[in-house]
């Protein structure tokens, strides 16, 4: 079975038990950041797989929010608290919406794609901000999740949710890694390089972009549900452009080299922010900005290039291990 997995996937599978064990070793507040970072990290993943096709989505918050709100509304209006139902509803909502919007967005590239995705996410922001039933800009609260009839409380509830979040996040990462190595994954890279040639070679760029867009939307919605449940609260800020911009930034900062990069990048950025606030509560943005600037100047291909650089050095020395994971 191991033979069918590439190195990234093996790494992810090994990381899974480690992530779960962390919950018992690390202090609770830190585990909390790991937990919420997995939710937002999945959205960054969604941004990243679109970047592979040269598409920068400045509105990925749209699906982050659709996921969170769909799950939240299910709980608010129908009293359903089952984790798996809420997750399924979040996925379904994003699937339907993105499949429809995909017909429009797949025709645009570069800045037009970025602006259009931004506009769509801001339409949702405007709509949610004026709906009083959904708490307007204040949003509304979600209940504690139950699991197939089992409703844990307190510490057990948090651990259950955390473990499931780990499993789903790692599962999504492996699935997307597979996707990047599938024919469509490679077509996406070709689209980024030269779309005209892709069409001449007899394949449809529109179709590939459409599929990628839907996949990114679904994974972002999963992120939205997994983020909203531990927080217990959703508000329209989830689809504001500042949130979407942060996802793009994380993707650029961590690099598009590997599926794991955006997940780790999200967490590292979160920790840097936490300490920046602690050191200087009034000017923490300066510290964060400096870190980002330095990363871009010295690691233009993102944090992940630290690891690929090492790998390349090893290979140039004579060892010719095939590189599969990128």
């Amino acid at each position: 079975m191991i033979k069918n997995l590439d190195r990234t996937e093996i790494g992810l599978l090994i990381a899974l038990p480690i992530l779960i064990i962390i919950a018992f070793i690390l202090p609770k507040w830190l585990v909390n950041y790991v937990h919420v970072s997995m939710g937002t990290g999945l959205v960054a993943l969604g941004v990243m797989i679109q970047m592979r096709a040269g598409l920068v989505s400045f509105g990925q918050g749209l699906y982050f929010c659709v996921g969170g709100y769909a799950a939240g509304m299910m709980a608010k209006f129908y009293g359903i608290t089952d984790f798996f139902v809420l997750l399924a509803v979040g996925i379904l909502a994003a699937l339907v919406l993105s499949a429809l919007l995909g017909f429009l967005l797949r025709r645009y590239r570069e800045i037009f794609f970025a602006m259009l995705s931004l506009a769509l996410s801001m339409i949702l922001f405007g709509m949610l901000s004026s709906v009083e039933e959904l708490g307007s800009t204040d949003g509304f609260n979600l209940p504690t999740a139950s699991y197939l009839g089992w409703s844990p409380t307190g510490e057990t509830a948090q651990l259950t949710l955390y473990t499931l979040t780990c499993i789903i996040a790692i599962g999504c990462a492996i699935a997307l890694n597979r996707f990047l190595k599938s024919p469509i994954g490679y077509i996406n890279e070709a689209i980024r390089e030269n779309e005209l040639r892709v069409e001449y070679l007899g394949t449809s760029a529109h179709k590939a972009v459409h599929i990628t867009y839907v996949l990114a939307a679904v994974v972002s919605a999963i992120g939205g549900v997994l983020w909203a449940l531990p927080l217990g609260h959703v508000d329209p800020e989830m689809t504001n452009w500042t949130t979407s911009g942060q996802f793009v930034f994380v993707s650029i900062l961590s690099g598009t080299g590997n599926i794991i990069a955006p997940m780790i990048g999200t967490f590292l950025l979160e920790i840097v922010r936490v300490y920046a606030v602690e050191i200087s509560p009034n000017t923490w943005q300066m510290i964060l900005g400096t870190v980002m600037l330095l990363t871009i100047i010295f690691l233009p291909k993102g944090l992940w290039s630290l690891i690929t650089r090492k790998k390349k050095a090893t290979r140039d020395d004579g060892a010719s291990a095939p590189i599969a994971g990128e």
Partner: peptide, 30 residues
């Protein structure tokens, strides 16, 4: 020494990053 099996190499790259992060954070924050 440098020639590693793919499995070992994966361990080296990804897991060590996670593990290092975990251990590093543990010692700093605990």
């Amino acid at each position: 020494v440098r020639k590693k099996a793919p499995f070992g190499a994966a361990l080296d790259n990804t897991t060590s990053l996670f593990a290092a992060a975990a251990i590093g954070l543990m010692t700093t924050f605990a």
